Amino acid sequence: MRLNFIYFNFDKSQLIKNLNKVDIKEFLEDNLKKINSKCFICFCDLGSDNLSKEHIIPKWLFKKFNQTNGEIKLGNSSNLKYQRLTIPACKDCNNGLLSEIEQDFKLILEENFTNLTFEDELTIAQWTLKVMLGTILKETILDKDIRNRGEKILSFEEIQKLIPLFILLQSVKYETKFENGKPWSLFITTFDSEDYDYQSHSFFKSASFKFGKIGFTITFDDSGYYKKAITNEFKFTNLSHKQFIVLAYSFFSLRSNELKDLTAHKEITSNILLIKNKKLFFKPKILLDKNFLTKYNHLIEIYQKRSNVNS
């Protein structure tokens, strides 16, 4: 079976038609259950002749920002070095499609995310999804407790909630028609320091990257709502590292309240920031300058307006 065209209605966040009349949701669910022996892009069977490993955080990135010993925290509170954060992929996808995405993304980064076309934004979205969903799939492979093998960090039932994002990732391989605008909101941000950082919450469909003094926050499956609500004049610029984390978690909290079955009531710890649930949003326990606080509160107002429209 081979798909060659995917057609989305993003207002409904689901596939509604493709040329071969294939149920892409069922196709993905069937293959994601066997991801340890499948390529996570094309889902072909992997064997000794075509098996390779895709670095979820690409080598060029952690070398560029001196993150060779960098780590990511997994769902079982363990840390995994970027070097070991890999996912099975076939050689064709790894050396072809994924390599092309990496090269295109590097060029966009080198241009500091300026003058972005729709195709550029799609590349950023695809690259981010590769990182977010690759990490999620890694957690379905790794044991939750190495002393008690069998139970994985994440179950297949949990990642089923992310099927819309897995469908969007298939745009790497298949021609995709977009209706009703972009299925994401993308915000380019600037910073006052040169370090690298990455914050994401796949189940809240948002991620933030800091590549030195330039970066972005992206939130998926919102029909571009937040980007439409926040005008082009409303920009996050010259942020401190703490403000970067506040901004990332602001989007996590806003999106969590849109996903009623996933709304968090536990405390979330992220390095230097502790955030607690406060009614409509997580209120950062951190002092913010007046300019940034104004923008942060504007995000809250946008969320409240959207909630009133959807209620």
Rank of each mutant, 00 (worst) to 15 (best):
F292V: 06
I159R: 01
C93D: 08
F5R: 09
F252D: 13
S253G: 06
E258C: 09
I57G: 07
F178H: 12
D92L: 09
K279E: 14
K285F: 11
W184K: 14
L137V: 06
L254R: 06
G96T: 05
F252Q: 08
L51F: 14
L137W: 03
I272E: 15
N9R: 11
T263E: 14
Y226M: 10
E71C: 01
E194C: 04
I230M: 15
K260F: 08
A248G: 02
R149Y: 02
D23P: 08
Q304K: 15
H298K: 15
K21P: 04
R84M: 10
S311V: 10
I136K: 01
N79F: 15
E151P: 00
G224W: 01
Y249T: 12
K173F: 03
L98Y: 05
F282L: 09
Q126C: 08
K33N: 05
S208R: 06
S253C: 07
Y225G: 05
L46A: 08
K227T: 08
F156E: 04
K81Y: 09
S202A: 15
Y226T: 05
G96H: 05
A89H: 02
N238C: 07
L169S: 09
N4T: 12
I41H: 04
K17T: 02
L299S: 06
T123L: 11
G96V: 10
N20K: 15
L154F: 13
S250A: 14
I136N: 04
L293Q: 13
H298G: 00
S240P: 07
D221E: 14
D49C: 07
L165F: 12
K63Q: 13
Y225R: 03
L186Q: 04
I230H: 13
I72H: 02
K34P: 01
N9F: 03
K242P: 03
A89L: 11
T219A: 13
F40T: 00
Y82G: 01
Q14R: 14
I163T: 04
K205M: 09
G96C: 13
M132N: 09
Y249V: 10
H201G: 06
P183R: 05
L137A: 04
N69Q: 12
K290V: 14
A207H: 00
L186R: 12
R147C: 00
E233K: 14
A264Y: 12
C39R: 00
Q304G: 03
K130E: 00
E111D: 15
Q304S: 10
E121D: 08
K25W: 08
K34Y: 06
F191S: 09
I136W: 02
T140Q: 02
E258W: 08
L273I: 15
K138F: 03
I300Y: 11
C44S: 10
A229D: 03
E258Q: 12
F211C: 09
F236K: 07
I16L: 13
